[in-house]
Design a protein around this nucleic acid. Sequence first.
DNA 1: TGCGATTAGTTCGACTTCGAATAATATTCG
DNA 2: CGAATATTATTCGAAGTCGAACTAATCGCA
Lengths: 162, 162
Amino acid sequence: MPEDRTTATQNDEDGFLSATALDQSLGYKLRLAQILAYRSFEEQMTDYGVAPRYLGLLGIVAENPGQAQNRLADSIGLQKSSLVTILDRLEKDGILERRASAQDRRAKTVWLTNKGEQVVAELFLHARDHEARMAAGIDDHLLADVVAALDVMIANLRGLSD
Amino acid sequence: MPEDRTTATQNDEDGFLSATALDQSLGYKLRLAQILAYRSFEEQMTDYGVAPRYLGLLGIVAENPGQAQNRLADSIGLQKSSLVTILDRLEKDGILERRASAQDRRAKTVWLTNKGEQVVAELFLHARDHEARMAAGIDDHLLADVVAALDVMIANLRGLSD
DNA sequence: TGCGATTAGTTCGACTTCGAATAATATTCG
DNA sequence: CGAATATTATTCGAAGTCGAACTAATCGCA
């Protein structure tokens, strides 16, 4: 499809619109990269229900068994109310389970099931492959710098909202 | 609140849970950074309705007046059906307007209003400030590398879904 | 020890985004 | 030229996330 010449445009090289004002916009690029990354990964992971979308959460539960819901929600950047239905579905799919806390009768603790551990292990293998394709052409040293920079931004943003 | 010692945990330095498996996970960090960045920015921009959330879209419309809805949706990574209510609300707030296309009776073209141009200019000033705080401690050269790396990832991800 | 403040999880209505289906229109091809 | 196919925007029900309000429980302090 030839470029639309009826209105002034600035295409990037693949037919998507862009804007000079956004060229250095971190927030915008984070959002776009995140939307595309999650959609792409979830499209490929068709046998795992909602687990691919919440692999970050599941990874944290795997290495921190028995944590409370509010801590998990905080850690992945979602509201505690959002976690209710997320955990409902992961529990229904047999990926994790909630247990009552021995220390605090208000609290629930969250644990992976045996099936959950297997699913998480498989999804991490797929995720590694997907990330290799996402990051193709970026050398390892730069990639490590990007990850470190993301950590700094996350820490800064967390500090902004205190 | 002291560390919870009843279950094995791996805290990071600010009381948020983490996981070794996620330390190098680009997808997860993109998502977390994006959630926190947008929430933080939107919390500060209390006088602008939904415009702050869609500043990326508005920036593209500003520099590409008169584009079709599906191209805008593709460019910001959302489904065309999502754009319908987004444009409805931005139009209702007087930020932009849709016009019928002269070339294609199915299509609508999207234009900023005068008010929209002003709002976008103001929001970009605020966004620049917000991004400075988000990226505090990251030197300019590394930041440029991060932006470039995000562009490569976005291009790779777009290529994966074709 | 009792009480006020705070916390943990849930509910509910609202907001944001998705994907299938639809109507209208444009394009392609025999 | 007409039928078949593809495209654009919209609708609608569903999924994902939010934030206020609520109940139950805990904590800290006088």
